[in-house]
Design a protein around this nucleic acid. Structure first.
Lengths: 156, 156
DNA sequence: AATCATTTAATGACATGACATGTATATCAC
DNA sequence: GTGATATACATGTCATGTCATTAAATGATT
């Protein structure tokens, strides 16, 4: 198997298993991994419009997180209010309950990141990050990721 | 953003964009990425039972590719015959048309791997492979990947 | 041989993801 | 100001991906 093919399937396998781990860890919070990403985005950078969330979502190509947000509104974790100056837009923000759940999501993520840190032992993280960045560069997910990093840096 | 978080989202973004690229490339063959993986597995190692395919599939946790295979049978690319000695099992193999399509899948994959090779310029592929391997080690996708590499090596 | 456990596959249920289309609103060209 | 265009969001459709359950067939135990 050529290295490129091994990397292709390794990326797929790592994503699948990371998602499965996160799904199980979030089950007690009654959240899916995608839903948790929306909560964390709104917690860090909200309030945002629907497309504003879409531009920061890595888990979806950003075209339309309407239904993803629907379930969070139904669950009482996100408030959706029409924007006053532009009635096409909706403003999304966390409710009080949403903020509480988002804090729990942070704890779950901290555990995940510790596991990834452990897996990083003895490997060149820079090579990993650079290769993966190139693989999504210029594409919607790559833009979302760049926006996420950029937004974080822009908050002093 | 800590390195672990960046890696988490980079893996997700790379998988998403790789899948999107492959989806578009396979569209003219009327195949999805998952369907193409089944064809390639059967082409390399078939005939196999349904669970035999599941143990080699990275794209799904192997619990049950029934419906994935259904569509390939409907499309006339895969033959499904009951196993004579154990009527619980089904034997899956490529039809003549399936073999022809699988050859085209190989060409699409060759293009994908060239793109990955280009992205590997100047990065330590060993670090990438080792980290990603650790992230799926011991899990279904990791087993499937190990089986894929192992099966390949076991064919002299 | 009868019963129970295990294995294999199919199916139900739910939430994505990706792409396409529809609809209301806002903006631009003139 | 009016028509055309663009934007923001919602929705339809299809194929996953995951977990659970069911059904059939086989194997193990007694």
């Amino acid at each position: 198997m050529r290295p490129a093919e091994l990397i292709r399937y390794s990326v797929l396998a790592a994503q699948r298993e990371g998602n499965r781990w996160l799904s199980r860890a979030l089950r007690e919070l009654e959240l899916t991994p995608s839903a948790s990403e929306v909560l964390r985005i709104l917690g860090d950078d909200g309030p945002l419009t629907l497309s504003g969330v879409g531009e920061l979502l890595v888990c979806e190509s950003g075209t339309n997180p309407s239904r993803l947000v629907d379930r969070l509104v139904d669950a009482g974790l996100v408030a959706r209010v029409p924007a006053p100056h532009d009635r096409r837009q909706v403003q999304l923000s966390l409710t009080a309950e949403g903020r509480a759940v988002e804090a729990q999501v942070r704890e779950v993520e901290a555990t995940l990141y510790s596991r990834i840190d452990a897996a990083l032992e003895g490997v060149d993280a820079g090579s990993v990050i650079e290769l993966l960045r190139r693989l999504s560069d210029g594409q919607p997910s790559g833009h979302a990721l760049a926006n996420r990093v950029g937004v974080e840096r822009s908050i002093p």
